[in-house]
Design a binder for these strands. Structure first.
Lengths: 229, 229
DNA sequence: CGTGCGCTTGACTTTTTTCAATAAAGGTGG
DNA sequence: CCACCTTTATTGAAAAAAGTCAAGCGCACG
């Protein structure tokens, strides 16, 4: 697929006239990354931002001791790094491809000009940033107000919902990454999955497959009404 | 002071023509809150957003057990609740006045219309949301990657910077609130302040006054290069 | 076919929270 | 102006949650 149709497919650019899609294609360039390759580093100058075409990218912070906190995992159609274009001018975190990934890169100034000229693009961007802010609110709430079992329960329910309300779900990412997303470490995650299994809340199959046995209890765990014994 | 000049003073509306300030004044209403009074509740419908005129407002999440995590403390000139106007339509957290507070309320639709018509307002809003996103990134990093002493050290340095690089600073909020802002509880905060004092990093005077004695060590604590013994 | 990565489990440590007691400070009504 | 009561703050002892360190297993990939 060519860049213009990629752009037309991105929610951020929804509702823009075709001429604008073509204008964007004119300023965008394609960049590909192999699994594990860095897209940008924390603190690097933000000369533009990215939109995932295919594959997945994690955005994360690193502590001095090497512990990692994943902030987002972005897939096809999702932009990342846009906020840095409008505030601070430096990326506030690291970005790395989780698998072979294609992106398009939108250079800063050309994009700013475009946003200035097209109110509907500006509104799309505002909605995008607002949604992201809301997600961060939830992340902070989870990290600060819930213990790991609650965060895991919430995540399992989120995956179940996203994957069509089925009781069978797939974790989508390796457990090391999931631990980092939940703000914990693989050992703790492993233990809590084992506890949930022991208590009959879930069944953990091979290959990142999880089967929900007791949805209600998971929901209570996620809200804090119940705790794992 | 009248609403028009209040609006002109808010960074969000900087650079707008006077006519627009007057248009905004036309749709804005003033709302006052007493200390401890709720401005809005988590989950309430967002029919508009607020800008602080005087006083201070905290935005926070509550757990079922009643633990509180402060997300922001906003003072004069700062807007809050804007993101809910553009995504979700419900407030994602509670808001409460920390002291007698005056705000102006901007109703949703009128503001959306205005943003659509005025690119420079849209850009201001984008910059505002982007900055806020960046702050959240730091909050998540702190909560997940740093221990309480590190978070406290970072906060003290932040206050010192904001208050003019002096070694004498004021906490600005009661310790209960500070604990909630740092994602901990008053007891823990109290103990860690005591440890910092014992190790000669700070001196804690009466009335929320803190004197920095060893800035370098505080900085190392904030980055994680050093730990409190 | 072996090396390594992803995952799990056990034992132990550290950090933080919980519960309880105490005390100082500040505002309110009598 | 004072007694009272709530708010704010501090400290100790014990419990709980999560992290660290270490070992071991199995499967995939080169």
């Amino acid at each position: 697929m060519d860049l213009t149709s990629q752009i037309a497919a991105a929610p951020l650019f929804a509702g823009l006239p075709k001429s604008q899609h073509e204008a964007l294609a004119g300023i965008a360039t394609e960049k590909a990354f192999s699994k594990g390759q860095a897209v940008f580093m924390d603190g690097a100058e933000a000369t533009g931002f990215y939109i995932v075409i295919s594959g997945r990218v994690k955005i994360f912070k690193l502590s001095l001791e090497g512990k990692e906190q994943i902030l987002h995992v972005f897939g096809p159609g999702e932009p990342f790094g846009e906020a840095a274009v409008f505030a601070g001018h430096r990326f506030p975190a690291h970005a790395e491809a989780l698998e072979p990934t294609k992106t398009m890169f939108l250079p800063r100034q050309a994009f700013v000009d475009l946003v200035t000229k097209h109110p509907s693009l500006a509104l799309n961007l505002i909605a995008d940033l607002s949604r992201r802010l809301r997600r961060f609110t939830n992340l902070v709430e989870d990290l600060s107000l819930k213990e790991v079992p609650g965060r895991l329960a919430a995540h399992l329910l989120y995956l179940s919902e996203r994957q069509g309300e089925s009781d069978d779900l797939t974790l989508e990412i390796p457990k090391v990454q999931l631990a980092s997303l939940l703000g914990t470490i693989p050992e703790t995650l492993s233990r809590i999955l084992a506890r949930m299994t022991r208590e009959g809340l879930i069944e953990s199959r091979e290959n990142r497959q999880v089967h929900i046995l007791d949805r209600e209890s998971l929901e209570e765990l996620a809200t804090g009404e119940r705790r794992l014994t």
